[in-house]
């Protein structure tokens, strides 16, 4: 456990750091961070905050169907501020729950990609040789395909293997796996190149001389020194992962409509867009855009702040 003084010292160091300074001096970043935190907080607390539980069929009533947003028309109803879809689901609550799923899939798939990429990158860079060649060629091949295509391929194979019903149940794992597998390459390559630089430095040689095992050296000594760039990629990839999930769901191969993410909501709304019920698709779309924009701005800032060459 940390002592109080340690925490204080750490905070003092953080407050004095370049990163904090660059954060403080960028209004855009502060706004983006605020927006991201707000969206994440609302999403996490959606069971408490949302006015309805839109995907519990027992609470739905068709008589509430197709209500317009309150500010748009006098037919609006304050119980459904952003209107309802044709099944009587509250659009605002759907967005809250949908954002939660989108963020969950985004974070989970970034973690999958990160774990896979860091592991392979460490092994590849530290051990080198045949293993390095194989991993990096696989990475090269995968880089020639757009990530979304790889994700579609993985999802398609899983769909072919299991029944519709079973697929709906495990859809979220499939999509996390598919997106995770399609984004590991960047981590692996970044980690590998950092490892190549680090592994010839004195501290690693010293560790080797005193007889530490390669695994220990990789995890305890090399890994902490390559986390900076990985963090940047992870933040930038979070936005991409959320967009990928939305794309897959929009194409109808992502999350099912019984468990809709933002992408699924946009798809469902898009079906009736031509008939004038714009609110069913526009609000989830705007939420998705805001979320991804905020996350990407944060990622951009982090990249600049952690890159000494840009200073």
């Amino acid at each position: 456990m940390w002592a109080d003084t340690d925490v204080k010292a750490w905070l003092a160091r953080a407050a004095d750091s370049d990163v904090w300074w660059s954060f403080k001096s960028s209004t855009l970043t502060i706004v983006a961070a605020g927006a991201t935190l707000l969206i994440i907080a609302i999403a996490l607390l959606s069971p408490l905050l949302a006015p309805h539980t839109p995907f519990d069929p027992a609470t739905l009533s068709l008589s509430d169907g197709l209500k317009p947003p309150v500010f748009w028309s006098a037919d609006g109803d304050w119980t459904f501020p952003l209107g309802t879809d044709d099944q009587g689901r509250d659009v605002l609550s759907s967005i809250m729950y949908g954002t939660r799923l989108s963020l969950l899939v985004g974070f989970a798939s970034v973690v999958v990609a990160m774990v896979l990429g860091i592991t392979l990158g460490l092994l590849s860079g530290y051990l080198g040789g045949m293993l390095d060649a194989v991993i990096m060629r696989v990475a090269d091949v995968q880089l020639t395909f757009p990530a979304i295509l790889v994700a579609l391929l993985i999802d398609g194979v899983v769909r072919g293997l299991i029944s519709v019903q079973r697929h709906d149940e495990i859809a979220i794992y499939v999509i996390v796996g598919a997106i995770g597998l399609s984004f590991w390459v960047q981590y692996a390559r970044t980690v590998r190149s950092s490892v190549l630089v680090e592994k010839n430095k004195e501290y690693v040689q010293a560790a080797r001389v005193i007889g530490l095992s390669p695994l220990l050296i990789m995890v305890r000594h090399v890994l902490p020194n390559v986390t900076g760039p990985v963090l940047v990629i992870a933040t930038l990839n979070l936005g991409l992962a959320i967009i990928s999930e939305a794309t897959l769901s929009f194409l109808g191969v992502g999350l099912p409509s019984t468990e809709p993410s933002l992408g699924t909501l946009i798809r469902l709304g898009n079906e009736v867009l031509q008939s004038g019920d714009w609110w069913i698709t526009v609000f989830p779309g705007a939420t998705l855009a805001a979320l991804v924009l905020a996350v990407n701005l944060l990622g951009d800032w982090l990249r600049d702040a952690l890159n000494p060459k840009l200073r």
Binding site: P57, A58, L60, L62, Q87, G88, V164, Q165
Partner: peptide, 23 residues
């Protein structure tokens, strides 16, 4: 499919959980 979804909601109110498979 939308009709079936509506029926699922109507039956949920009487305590019947309907697992819909639309294909």
């Amino acid at each position: 499919e939308k009709i079936c979804q509506a029926v699922v909601a109507m039956l949920a109110k009487i305590g019947v959980k309907v697992n819909l498979r639309a294909q």
